[in-house]
Amino acid sequence: MSWIDVADLNDIPLPGARVVKTHFGDIGLFRTGEAQVFATSNACTQDGGPLSEGIVHGTRVACPIDNSVFDLETGALLGTGEGHLQTYPVRLDGTRVLLERESVLARGAA
């Protein structure tokens, strides 16, 4: 696997999120612990709300528009309703945050 350096840990509020722009839409980088980051698609599956603007709690985020709660580890929508966020492999190298290259670039090339 090859990795692409996208951010420094310290640029992501704790607990909080930042956005990475890609060809196929925004990815949310969610920091849930000192050295714990998850990456998922940023749009709420229900009404499209930008999840990176939601309240990050535990390893979950609540949509700022409709309060849908997602598990950041699996991307699953919690509670009632159907929906799944795309998740992306993340790796930390010291304080650098890396995303897996293929998964975040491939679809853009297509």
Binding site: I4, V6, A7, D11, I12, R18, V19, V20, K21, T22, H23, D26, L29, R101, V104, L105, A106, G108, A109
Partner: peptide
């Protein structure tokens, strides 16, 4: 702003 913009990077 976004913390990174990958639309500027070409896929391999």
């Amino acid at each position: 702003a976004p913390v990174a913009d990958l639309t500027q990077i070409a896929a391999e």
